[in-house]
């Protein structure tokens, strides 16, 4: 990254901490109002946090509530900061760290386009079946598969499709929900 040539004389403390990074999934319940997503995204870019995945949609139409699921990576201190920074935004109701609660289900949906003929086409179809992917579009030389699962399963499927004629992928990003009877 920005390693200076020699020990510089600077206005700021330049040594970075090197705590190991963790990946966390955060569920954020927000008031669905203009600019709310921009606030959340702006927070991440402005403070240099990572967004690995972000999904958002209105979940409670009547109360104008949207649920944002963010997968982010950072040191434990940064993750804690992210949660507090999100929580103090005016339109944010609640921030739940699904990774810490440890009782959550994460799913992602992907549509995967594969083109080919002959053996590779048959192989793609067989693998799709093994992964419980559905064919949602087909031509004589292509398929579009729909696959749902956790992110690693989807990535694995995509990797397998690559040599079989992978054309393109559209992924939704992660949606998460807690197990058991309680809401967030």
């Amino acid at each position: 990254m920005n390693q200076p040539a020699n020990q510089p004389a600077s206005a700021y403390f330049l040594e970075e901490r090197h705590d190991p990074n963790e990946t966390h999934t955060l569920s954020v319940l927000v008031q669905n109002e203009p600019g709310v997503l921009a606030r959340v995204i702006g927070l991440f870019s402005g403070r240099g946090y990572n967004i690995d995945s972000l999904t958002v949609s209105e979940t409670e139409n009547q109360k104008h509530l949207s649920r944002i699921t963010i997968v982010t990576t950072g040191t434990p201190m940064v993750i804690e900061q992210i949660k507090h920074q999100l929580d103090r935004m005016i339109p944010v109701y609640r921030v739940v760290d699904m990774t810490i609660t440890g009782r959550s289900i994460e799913r992602e949906l992907a549509m995967v386009k594969v083109s080919g003929r002959g053996d590779s086409r048959v192989e793609a179809l067989r693998l799709a079946d093994a992964f419980r992917a559905r064919v949602i579009d087909a031509t004589t030389e292509s398929f579009v598969f729909e696959i749902t699962g956790n992110s690693s399963k989807i990535s694995q499927f995509i990797d397998l499709m690559r040599p079989l004629g992978l054309v393109e992928v559209s992924r939704t990003g992660v949606a998460a929900i807690g197990r058991g009877p309680e809401g967030m």
Binding site: P8, S10, A11, F13
Partner: peptide, 8 residues
């Protein structure tokens, strides 16, 4: 300040 790493 020699080789100081920094902080105003």
């Amino acid at each position: 300040f020699a080789g100081g790493k920094a902080l105003v």
